[in-house]
């Protein structure tokens, strides 16, 4: 009986620790996602500034580029090219965010900003479009510098909280 209890306690502590590690990794992944999004925005900026490329074509190029956001932008490109679609870009963007995991890796605030960016994309003249892209990219850079500065503490905290929670549950069970 005692052995089973010991095994149970060990399992609880290991699982709680693992959950902490997963949350830590998620924090690291958020940085990677934002970095990839920043690169996509740079592509938007250069394509609009120098070639006046349409949103559909830019999304298709990002999709072909193998970024973390490839599937999402591939979906946007396909939907925009669909001649039977009676939806607008905002609706397509929102649907894409629900469909693809990549945007789920963002915080709630970042998700809102990303959705706002998508809704307004392509609706104005070149200067305003570039201004909006730059503004959003600055926001992402700000988020990235904040996250990168605190990433080690966040990962450590997640792991520690996981282990501590495991220990706490074990004590409660004993």
């Amino acid at each position: 009986m005692a052995e089973i209890k010991l095994i149970g306690m060990a399992l609880i502590m290991v699982s709680a620790g693992a959950i902490g590690c997963i949350f830590g990794e998620r924090a690291k992944r958020e940085i990677k996602i934002l970095l990839s999004l920043s690169r996509c925005l740079m592509m938007f900026e250069s394509e609009i500034r120098y070639c006046g490329t349409t949103v559909n074509e830019i999304c298709a190029r990002i999709c072909a580029g193998g970024e973390m956001w490839s599937d999402f932008f591939g979906y946007i490109s396909d939907e925009l090219a669909d001649n039977n679609s009676n939806t607008d870009i905002g609706m397509i963007w929102e649907k894409g965010m629900k469909l693809f995991d990549i945007s789920k890796g963002l915080s709630i605030e970042d998700k809102e900003e990303f959705l706002r960016f998508g809704r307004e994309l392509g609706s104005s003249d070149r200067e305003s479009e570039l201004g909006r892209i730059n503004m959003y990219n600055d926001y992402i850079k700000g988020r990235l510098s904040y996250l990168e500065k605190n990433i080690n503490e966040r990962v450590r905290l997640c792991r520690l909280l996981g282990v501590t929670a495991g220990v706490f549950i074990t004590i409660l069970m004993v």
Partner: peptide
């Protein structure tokens, strides 16, 4: 409005 959006491929800036 929707016809114009489709016409400009949701990229007004590209057709200035």
């Amino acid at each position: 409005r929707n016809t114009f959006l489709a016409l400009s491929e949701f990229s007004t800036y590209a057709f200035e």
